[in-house]
């Protein structure tokens, strides 16, 4: 059995990596943070087929699955892409297959952005940028256009990912499903978004660790690079271990979602929980290694760190996923 990624999947990763390296530099992320409305690579990603990759060929996509999307989403995290790519990849197949084809087409083409509000989640992310919201209210799953949703903007720890408390009405809604079907689809979208967030978090962790390692090599104190000190070295080693244990869980969850494994939700929770814990841990180690400079808003670390903090709580907090894992292993409903 082969557990590695295919040559095609590595090429997909390389394409996304190249796009983001050129068009999603830390300067772009910082400009979004500072509300300067820079050009982000959202359009380029759409043009390359990334946003619509999980749509079927009939729906204008490539018929790829979550295992194909895994590495591109990790790359998006590595670049701290300030766009709702997790939401697009998580929701589009459901939206397109259940009567939301026109919106799916626009989102896949990079002409619209989608945000997700499932169940009793109080906040929606990318509230300022979203053109449409995928909402599940416990009875029906529907698309609500931005102009029909009242948004009460909130202060986000990550200013590149604006948040708001939404108030939905039925005006202009496109109902995708109702009853048991809606619940099932909403659960699928939720798991896909949690999985996407886990992959994104692992990308953020990789970048934060890289920043810390580079800094530890460059920063000289007492006549030697701080990375040569055991206390710093061990801190970085622990961060790498946390990340390396989080990654395979996310890849397994991607496979489980792709093949509709009956234990899909358990695997997604394992992946999201461990990715969130790892990202918060790596952020802390990176901050410690950077010392005072890491606390400043001028340093890039905070752009990655705050996204990690924000995403750790998105699509299920650590407590939520720990509880779901507990219930699954105890065979509770």
């Amino acid at each position: 059995m082969r557990f590695g990624f295919t040559e095609d999947q590595l090429m997909l990763r390389d394409t996304v990596r190249e796009i983001l390296a050129r068009e999603c530099t830390p300067e772009v992320v910082r400009a979004v943070w500072e509300k300067k409305s820079p050009k982000t690579p959202y359009g380029t990603l759409a043009e390359a087929g990334v946003l619509g990759m999980t749509l079927t060929e009939e729906q204008g996509g490539l018929g790829l699955d979550e295992t194909d999307a895994a590495l591109p989403l990790e790359e998006a995290g590595y670049a701290a892409l300030p766009e709702p790519i997790v939401e697009a990849i998580a929701a589009l197949p459901v939206v397109a297959a259940h009567g939301g084809g026109a919106w799916a087409e626009k989102i896949a083409a990079g002409e619209a952005r989608l945000s997700i509000s499932i169940g009793d989640a109080r906040l929606v992310a990318f509230a300022e940028q979203a053109d449409v919201f995928l909402r599940y209210d416990g009875k029906k799953l529907y698309l609500a256009p931005r102009e029909e949703v009242a948004l009460e903007m909130q202060v986000s720890v990550d200013r590149t990912r604006s948040i708001a408390v939404p108030r939905f009405t039925d005006e202009g809604a496109t109902v995708l499903a109702e009853g048991a079907e809606a619940a099932e689809l909403a659960a699928l979208v939720f798991d896909r978004a949690a999985l996407g967030s886990a992959l994104f978090l692992n990308g953020l962790s990789r970048k934060m660790l890289e920043l810390a390692v580079e800094y530890a090599k460059d920063r000289v104190q007492f006549g030697r690079p701080i990375g040569s000190q055991q206390a710093v070295k061990h801190r970085l080693a622990d961060a790498l271990i946390a990340l390396e244990f989080a990654k395979p869980l996310a890849y397994r969850a991607a496979w489980s979602v792709a093949v509709a494994d009956p234990e899909r939700s358990l695997h997604v929770s394992l992946a999201k929980l461990r990715a969130s814990e790892a990202a918060r841990f790596v952020a802390k180690q990176s901050l410690q290694v950077h010392g005072a400079i890491g606390y400043t808003i001028e340093h890039d670390l905070h752009l990655w760190m705050k996204r990690a903090w924000a995403l750790a709580a998105a699509y299920g907090t650590e407590d939520f996923h720990r509880d779901r894992i507990g219930r699954a292993i105890l065979n509770e409903a």
Binding site: A48, G49, L62
Partner: peptide, 16 residues
Amino acid sequence: SEGGRYASLKGIMAAK
């Protein structure tokens, strides 16, 4: 552009 065109996902699939 700073480089050649990106290999689109469709292009990658077609390249096979």
